[in-house]
């Protein structure tokens, strides 16, 4: 090999190697969130209300509060995750997310109509959460609940909006 082309190869190789050894740790750090859980909290069923306080067939709003939420370097205690509508039927309780599946507005209970309604774009839902009018692509999102020792527990989740299927966000 000629001296000049040897130097060319060596220089090119050195430059590529230097680029690589700097890029590797940098990319490792930047892509760190892909490999680990950065946020956590609220995956477990959380107590939201006493069963005795719920009236049969009348939706009651309850706030879901996580004991602990981790967010990167922080640990937050008693964090409100969101709100749910609780509907009691005898000894069982169902829960509907207050987030409208259409565009994420807060769905309200309208007692005189005995129905849920979204103030933003007028989606309407019946007591079971089924969509009865307006632009919402699906029923209100139901959440897993259980009743234990007189307490109502809800596993809080968020779902993707503007989809006809209910997919976790």
């Amino acid at each position: 090999m000629e001296r000049r082309s040897l130097f060319k190869v060596l220089s090119g190789g050195l430059m590529a190697a230097l680029g690589a050894v700097i890029a590797a740790p940098v990319l490792g750090l930047l892509s760190s969130p892909l490999r680990r859980r950065v946020q956590s909290g609220g995956e477990e069923p959380l107590p939201v209300a006493d069963l005795a306080r719920l009236t049969d067939g009348v939706p009651t709003r309850a706030t879901v509060i996580a004991e602990v939420v981790r967010d990167a370097w922080s640990r937050f205690e008693k964090v409100p995750l969101g709100a749910v509508w609780l509907i009691r039927r005898g000894e069982t309780v169902s829960a509907l997310s207050t987030t409208c599946p259409h565009a994420g507005c807060f769905v309200d209970w309208e007692p005189q109509k005995k129905a849920f309604g979204c103030p933003c774009h007028g989606s309407a839902f019946d007591l079971a959460g089924k969509c009865t009018g307006g632009p919402s692509p699906r029923a209100m999102d139901s959440l897993e609940t259980e009743v234990k020792d007189g307490k109502v527990l809800v596993r809080f989740q968020r779902f993707r909006q503007a989809k006809s299927d209910k997919e976790p966000a």
């Binding site: 590797a24 740790p25 940098v26 490792g28 750090l29 892509s31 760190s32 490999r35 680990r36």
Partner: peptide, 11 residues
Amino acid sequence: MNDQMTLGWFV
């Protein structure tokens, strides 16, 4: 960054 992110200590 230093103790929990990948290669944070190295960067």
